[in-house]
């Protein structure tokens, strides 16, 4: 590790690689089981499988579970939790623009005036 740090600094990149966080294997295993459990939960609350029906909240519940799973993957497996905050900011920039796209599309869809064709 020390040798890597010297090499990185010699190339002018000594600002992060040397301090890479090592995640214990036990954490990875816990996250794996959490992901499997959340997948099972997704299936369990799916109406065609279990008959569970929360009405208009069905999609919201599915998205919430998916968001928790994605956060675990990003934070632990991809190391965003331990990385520089700049990387987190870059990630959320992407999420922001995704929200922009979805919100404007929804704005259009839910404000359309449906006119019956007379043709």
């Amino acid at each position: 590790m020390a040798q890597n740090k010297v090499a990185a600094e010699a190339h002018g990149h000594g600002d992060g690689h040397a301090g890479h966080h090592i995640v214990p294997m036990s954490t990875y295993v816990k996250v794996l089981f959490a992901l499997l459990a959340l997948t099972a939960l997704t299936v369990a609350v799916a109406r065609p499988v279990s008959g569970f029906d929360a009405g208009i909240f069905n999609t919201l519940i599915a998205f919430l579970i998916a968001a928790v799973k994605a956060s675990l993957v990003l934070g632990i497996f991809m190391g965003l939790k331990y990385d520089k905050k700049l990387n987190l900011a870059i990630f959320f920039t992407g999420v922001f623009f995704l929200l922009v796209m979805l919100l404007f599309c929804l704005l259009d869809i839910y404000t359309r005036v449906h006119v019956q064709s007379t043709l």
Partner: peptide, 9 residues
């Protein structure tokens, strides 16, 4: 076919 509200914005 986009809504008028979205169009104005």
């Amino acid at each position: 076919g986009q809504s008028e509200v979205a169009g104005i914005i």
